[in-house]
Simulated scan of single mutants.
Amino acid sequence: MSMPMGIAQTANLGLCDMAIERAQTRTQSLPGMVCLYGPSGVGKSVAATYVSNRRRAYYVQAKSVWTKKYFLQAVLREMGITPGRNIPEMLDQAAQELALSNRPLIIDEFDHIIDRNAVELVRDIYESSQAAILLIGEERLPDKLKKYERFHGRVLDWVPARLVSIEDARKLAPIYCQDIEVADDLLDVIVEKANGSMRRVVVNLERVHEIALSLGWPMATKQLWSDRALYTGQAPKRRL
């Protein structure tokens, strides 16, 4: 896979940036947590990584095996702080840093936090710091959080991530198909085959780039591409 230069200003990147800005600039009476949710592959994590750099946010991507203690240790490591001896001490450390620094916190893969029964721990961090916190998760994240009434009520905004569009594909093409122009008719096919997934669009753009370079195409079109295969995420059928 080639190394792309730069990052495309896709719709989800803009949504992610606006969500965290709204939390940071809210009035004091409003809650400070926002949630970006959507299916896998639409570019949520890429957007969050970019926005964390732009907004100087602390960013952690939760893992399925993390305990409450390990989650707090990960947050503190991101902050450059030596973790304390126990969970209450570490929680106070994280909350104090957020309050003093006025920097936001982004928690990616928040579904894992729910699965590990650590939702109230995040609420405690928020209550103690009043920091802007962006939660990122899968499509059912809002429904999963409904049973945590005290947490749910502190979410300022629920932002559904968008499925990849032709406009996104146009912005991705110059990054993943450098020196090759990709016609809109081929981009339409790529977006259709992607079924909403930005990841699949990127895979197919790199495939187009490879074929176009090998065959000397200055522009890749639907006609030139012909019946060549595009990645759809589906496993090929077994041929007997």
Rank of each mutant, 00 (worst) to 15 (best):
N117D: 08
Y59K: 09
D188Y: 04
A23K: 02
Q9T: 04
P88K: 00
L163P: 07
T10K: 08
K146Y: 05
M33N: 01
N12L: 00
D179G: 11
A8K: 04
R170D: 08
S101A: 12
E21A: 13
N195E: 15
D185W: 01
K63S: 10
P39K: 14
R77N: 14
I166H: 09
L121K: 01
I211N: 03
A131V: 08
R123M: 02
Q96N: 10
V119N: 05
Q28E: 14
D179S: 12
N102Y: 10
K171I: 03
L134S: 13
P174H: 09
K69D: 06
L163A: 11
A74T: 09
S40A: 13
D108I: 06
V191T: 07
A173N: 02
V202T: 11
G84E: 10
W158K: 03
L76E: 05
G153C: 14
Q96I: 01
H209V: 02
R26K: 11
M3L: 10
M5V: 15
L163K: 13
Q223A: 13
A94R: 12
S101I: 04
E181W: 01
P142A: 08
E127P: 00
R54E: 13
I107T: 02
A173G: 08
F151E: 01
H152T: 01
I113V: 15
V159G: 06
G137S: 07
L30K: 03
K68R: 14
L163D: 12
P160E: 03
G6C: 10
S64R: 15
R207T: 08
F151P: 06
R200A: 14
Y148V: 08
A94Y: 06
L145M: 06
V203R: 09
D188W: 02
T232M: 02
S197F: 01
M5F: 12
M219W: 00
W225V: 07
D227C: 03
K222E: 12
P174V: 06
Y176E: 02
S129A: 15
Y50H: 14
N195S: 10
L230P: 01
S226G: 15
A94L: 08
W158M: 13
A95F: 11
V208R: 11
E206G: 09
M5R: 10
W225N: 03
M198T: 07
A212H: 02
L213M: 11
I180G: 04
A48K: 01
P88Q: 09
S29C: 02
A99F: 03
L230G: 02
Y231T: 06
A62N: 11
A131I: 00
L145S: 00
L205F: 04
R54V: 15
M18N: 03
Y126I: 02
E138D: 12
G216A: 05
G6H: 11
I125S: 00
S64E: 09
W217D: 05
L135G: 04
K222D: 08
E138T: 04
Q93P: 08
L91P: 04
A235E: 09
V34F: 03
A57N: 09
R54F: 11
N195A: 01
A74G: 15
C35I: 04
S129V: 06
Y50G: 00
S52K: 12
E192M: 07
S64T: 14
D188C: 01
V119E: 06
